[in-house]
Design a binder for these strands. Structure first.
Ligand SMILES: [Zn+2]
Ligand SMILES: [Zn+2]
Ligand SMILES: [Zn+2]
Ligand SMILES: [Zn+2]
Lengths: 134, 134
DNA sequence: ATAAACCTGTGAGCGACTCACAGGTCAAGG
DNA sequence: CCTTGACCTGTGAGTCGCTCACAGGTTTAT
């Protein structure tokens, strides 16, 4: 199977497949003409990569897990450690996204009552900086 | 005021200030020895940038707003348009972060009941790919 | 034979920093 | 007066996970 076919089968951009090859997550053999040949094993490996990605692992994490498996170790301990780490990070990011959305929604709400400001020289934008004329 | 002093005053990394200078959001004069000199106006402008950043505007957005103000137009219409745009994006990102965190939490919960897998040749990691031995 | 539709490796762009590096400037202390 | 150390400068590169562009090679169909 060649790159495009594999990409279609998994509904990912062919450049994503090529990115994984470039970064060593997939190592397909090459035929005489230089084309990559993805075996059933590479196919399973791509499935693994995509599932791990869905679970929030970074590509470096996935590389680690693949290395474990390749060297005959169980990747589970690393998988458990890493997902805790990534989960902590994801929760932090989620929190900051939540506060951001709240801040933005408040701003939009407050701005509805405010007129557009004319440049008065003291301010760049009264909406953003908060009114000073009251 | 020089870069480091300004950075301290606003509790931001001095490299952030220098990044804004490099990307044209701040344009301090330079003294004879080549040092940047940040006036009260630059200080106000940095405050604006940081506040706009808190509200989810991109640096390009902020550049646009500053351009508006510089050319004597009210930046408010653009501010209103852009914040709606960024809010929509932020909500999408928030949603995807929420589902990610949910997926990760489910995985962690389910994995607690599962033992570490020994490599069986069919799988890379049973935890991540889902058990096949049942 | 030629065109269309694949494939390849490589380089660069995204966003908003952050760090490293080489070299210039300045104040204080001996 | 001179050295030391703490600042400053511009520039280049690294982060992350793609995604696209480009130039050129291969295969397939007409
Ligand atoms: Zn005003
Ligand atoms: Zn305004
Ligand atoms: Zn198994
Ligand atoms: Zn496992």
């Amino acid at each position: 199977m060649k790159a495009g076919e594999l990409a279609n089968r998994f509904s990912v951009n062919v450049n994503t497949v090529r990115h994984y090859v470039r970064s060593g997550l997939l190592s397909p053999d090459k035929d005489a003409s230089g084309y990559h040949y993805f075996s059933a094993e590479e196919e399973r490996q791509l499935a693994f990569i995509l599932r791990a990605r869905e679970l929030g692992f970074t590509l470096d994490d996935i590389r680690q897990l693949l290395n474990d498996a390749t060297s005959g170790e169980s990747p589970c301990p690393h998988a458990r450690e890493l997902i805790e780490l990534r989960l902590t990070e994801a929760r932090q990011k989620l929190n900051s996204m939540q506060s951001l959305v709240s801040r933005m929604e408040s701003a939009v709400r407050e701005w509805q009552a405010l007129p557009d400001c004319a440049p008065c020289g003291d301010h760049i934008c009264h909406l953003i900086e908060g009114g000073h004329h009251e």
